[in-house]
Amino acid sequence: MDTALLIEKSILVVLLFLVSLGAAAYMTYFERKLAAWIQDRVGPDRAGPFGILQPIADGVKMFLKEDFIPSKADKWLFIIGPGLAMFTALITSAVIPWGPKLHLFGRDITLQVADINIGILYVFGVISIGVYGIMIGGWASNNKYSLYGAIRASSQMISYELAMGVSAITIVLLSGSLSLNDIVNGQKDVWNIFYQPLAFLIFFICALAELNRAPFDLPECESELVGGYHTEYSSMKLGLYLFSEYTSMFVSSAIMSILFFGGYNFPGMSHFSGNTLAILGILAFAVKIFIFIFVIMWIRWTIPRFRFDQLMHLGWKTLLPLSLINLLITGIVIAYQNGWF
């Protein structure tokens, strides 16, 4: 491996890390402002102009709070929990293609850390281990509310992973590849959403459930479980849990725009080339991610929470059969187009 490539990838990794964390920090501000707007309030406006420094103030506050570990807690697992949650939230961004090739210093720079040919499976692998952070943290707290939160989180995530995976398989069938790069390049002319609106709907609902966002935020449902799995957490450990939720929101918005909305593709992109195309592509991708984040937040402040049995019914009895039927129809249509009948 040549050194230039190594430097290039390291810069990209650090940049992605900073961008995901920065985006997560400013998403908290954006969410509070949006909630205020929806509820006809002002929202944070003290720190800096329009309260723009609020995330920094929150971060400093989180760090300066007392870091408390309950005496009956499993100390090591209590510490590992939030770290694991943040880790799994961050590593997904490694396989996301953020834009077309950038041409800098006489080199073609791919804006993707690793173009592995099983990209989408990697994403699902990370999602499936993402539940450990919440589970371990909730159990190690030695508190019944935390344990209930952890149990709810894990059963919810296992249930919704299935329908999510099946609806993603339809996209794999369409593009004929597991690599996220190929999936994006296959959508140059028509985005997948026009072929697979149902799969998108299922995927989006499941993503909300996987993120533990309202209306599926039962693991941290304040009216029943105090704070859910992070009841006993304080200081930056709590901060990491809250932060990881926003980071995974950012990453899953990126995944959804890749799978269904053409990633960095935008209408009329054949008129551009080179670095202009790359920058416009990154901007288009950022706009799509932003719209997804906005919709997710909008849903949170609009729709009330589900009951737990409703959540399970929706997952197993509605979304999973629907996604299987959708997969079957897609398979038949693709087989027909290839002249099987």
Binding site: I118, L121, S128, V131, Y132, M135, A150, I151, S155, I158
Partner: peptide, 22 residues
């Protein structure tokens, strides 16, 4: 590799942990 991660680490072990926690 990735199937090993999804199936064993992601699904089966979560169920193990689930049962043990209860």
């Amino acid at each position: 590799a990735i199937v090993n991660m999804i199936v064993y680490a992601g699904a089966i072990m979560v169920l193990f942990l689930f049962v043990l926690m209860l």
